Computed example of a mutant assay.
Amino acid sequence: MFWLGRQASECEWRARAVVGLFRSARNANTPEVRGLRLLRSWLSPAQLAQFDAKGHFDVVGGESGKKYRIKFGICANVLELSEDGTPKVGWCVVPDCCLVAGDVMLAQKIALETFESAALAKANKFGAPAR
């Protein structure tokens, strides 16, 4: 009986430690966390809700009006969507410098919304992944 009580208190201690770890990571001031904070501050309410629910958000190309989906990541994470919302073609739109995912995704969003054709001219095109 004593062993079970001790085991339960150890589990509670570990659970509190894990919760504390996640809280400190959420509030950390690492480049990754700062990049995601900045990205989130630039997303529209609809994009933010989509990002929180699905891990990606959609943008509309500023020149063509095409819809693009930006998935979490730093490369090969932009999908051009067809009229029915299925992936049509993929784009690898990556800045020339080394950035964390949130910063790359923000750069992709701004590039597609403001100078779409110039961004796609420098991007690598790839076949859209199967659903």
Rank of each mutant, 00 (worst) to 15 (best):
A28Y: 01
Y68V: 00
S44I: 01
A17P: 00
L21K: 10
C11V: 12
R14F: 12
D52M: 09
A17D: 13
D103L: 08
E10T: 03
D96C: 02
G90D: 06
A25W: 08
L43P: 07
P95N: 07
G35F: 05
A53P: 09
V78P: 02
P31E: 14
T86E: 08
V78L: 07
A17Q: 14
G35D: 06
V59K: 00
W91E: 05
I74L: 03
K54F: 15
V94Q: 08
Y68W: 06
C75N: 13
H56E: 14
F72P: 02
A25Q: 09
L43G: 01
L43F: 03
G73L: 11
S44R: 11
L79N: 11
A49Y: 06
V59H: 01
T86Y: 06
E12T: 04
K66L: 14
L36T: 03
K71C: 15
G55Q: 12
A15M: 10
G73F: 09
R16I: 00
A53L: 07
D52C: 04
I74G: 15
W42V: 00
P45Y: 02
R16P: 00
N29D: 15
F51V: 03
E63G: 04
A101M: 06
I74T: 15
R37Y: 04
L36D: 02
A101H: 08
P31N: 12
S82E: 07
G55A: 13
C11N: 09
G85H: 07
V78H: 03
R26F: 13
G90V: 02
G65L: 01
A46M: 06
A15S: 09
W42C: 11
V33Y: 04
G102D: 02
P87T: 11
L38R: 11
E83F: 10
A25N: 06
C98K: 10
I70E: 02
L79H: 14
E80L: 15
W91A: 01
V78I: 03
K67P: 01
V33P: 06
R23H: 10
V94S: 04
A76W: 08
C97V: 13
V60R: 11
C92K: 09
H56R: 06
C98L: 08
L48N: 01
G55L: 13
I74F: 02
V18P: 01
G62H: 03
R69C: 12
A46Q: 14
A17K: 13
G73I: 11
L99H: 03
N27P: 00
G20N: 12
F51Y: 05
Q47H: 01
V19M: 09
R14L: 15
L48D: 07
V78Q: 02
R14C: 10
G35N: 04
R37I: 07
S24W: 09
H56I: 07
P95F: 08
P95Q: 02
L21W: 07
N27S: 15
S82W: 00
K54P: 04
G55D: 13
C11P: 00
Q50F: 00
